[in-house]
Amino acid sequence: MRFYPLFVGTFFLVSLIATVPVFHEYVVLRSQFEIECAKPIQDYVCFQDRPDRDGECQKSDPDFPNADLEFIRVFLNSPPLVKQATCSLERINFVHYLDQAPGGLFYEDGQMSIAWSMLKNREFLFADRVLWAHAGYKFKDLFVKYADRRELWIEFQQSKEPDLVFDPGFAVAYAHEIAHHIEQIYLQNGPQHCTKTDQAANSTIAPSNNCSFLESKSQAKISIDLDKDSGFTRAYDICSPKEQFAQAFSAYVFKHHFGFSFNIYADGQLALAQNDIFTAAKFTQKLDLAEALLSYDMTSPEVRLQLSQDHESCRGPFAIN
């Protein structure tokens, strides 16, 4: 057997050069997460095949060893409020099969469950994830209608360079779902509190709260261009201030924090322009609420308590004008 030390040495050096930066990034990003949350990401992570709130947890999975790294990238690029809310989660579940969550992730009582597929950068799903996060369209509806992915696409620009490369499709969906946790911990009276015209605005969009009628109306096709105030939203979104808030929060973070602007096209026609969200009557007050929440720096428990008290009393950024 012949031994080629030059070949072996070169191979080892190349492998080391390729591996060290990845390992270094992994260690650094994990350390940054621990600094932000005062405990390591491992204390949050739970790998499961299927979601089970009280089921057994694995702290890692050899089939997807970098799941937490992809999550941390989005976390570190997020605004302080999203970071703080994430740090206050009881658990973060990375779930192999998450069939019951049309958005690929869901929040429930202090736990965030995220499908593996959401943490794998899939650019061809970017449009789907924006439509779900901002406008309530479920992935499966678009998969059925647009079997050929080339019929649905997104044009987008990002106005600022991020500190870390991250998956914007996951970021926009995560901003939507973490909004439910933010509401639970800071908006004790609900997102409609501190608004004087919320009920009036909802009544013009959903007369008599007839959700079944609205559902049958909105399931048929994407009709955003025909009815910009309500056509692009599923019935559960129209009838729920909580979902309206999550959509508006995601839209505000995506535009003003991450710096994205976009247009989504289906069958060659404009399906959703970002401006449609920011001019739709039903979103106006929820966008104002998102802006008010994000104005707090979240640097101390005192600031976080102040936020809750200000919203409860409708003062400061939450004052009714």
Rank of each mutant, 00 (worst) to 15 (best):
P102Q: 08
A115D: 07
G103S: 01
F126G: 02
N77A: 14
N93Q: 14
P62F: 11
F64E: 06
A101C: 09
K59Q: 13
I92K: 05
P62K: 12
D63A: 15
N121H: 13
R122E: 13
R122H: 12
N77H: 05
F71P: 06
L69V: 11
S113N: 13
P65R: 12
V95H: 03
R122L: 07
I72V: 13
F126Q: 09
F71Q: 07
I72K: 02
R129F: 08
V130A: 04
L119S: 08
A115Q: 07
L105D: 04
Y107A: 04
R122I: 04
S78P: 04
S60V: 06
F75I: 03
P62H: 11
A85C: 01
L69M: 14
A127N: 06
C57K: 10
K120L: 09
V130I: 15
S113Q: 15
V95Y: 01
D63I: 05
Y97P: 01
F124G: 01
S78W: 00
F106K: 08
S88K: 07
R91A: 06
Q84P: 00
F106A: 12
P79N: 01
F94K: 05
D63Y: 07
D109M: 03
N93K: 06
L131A: 08
P62G: 13
F126L: 15
I114E: 05
C87W: 01
C57H: 10
E70G: 04
L89Y: 04
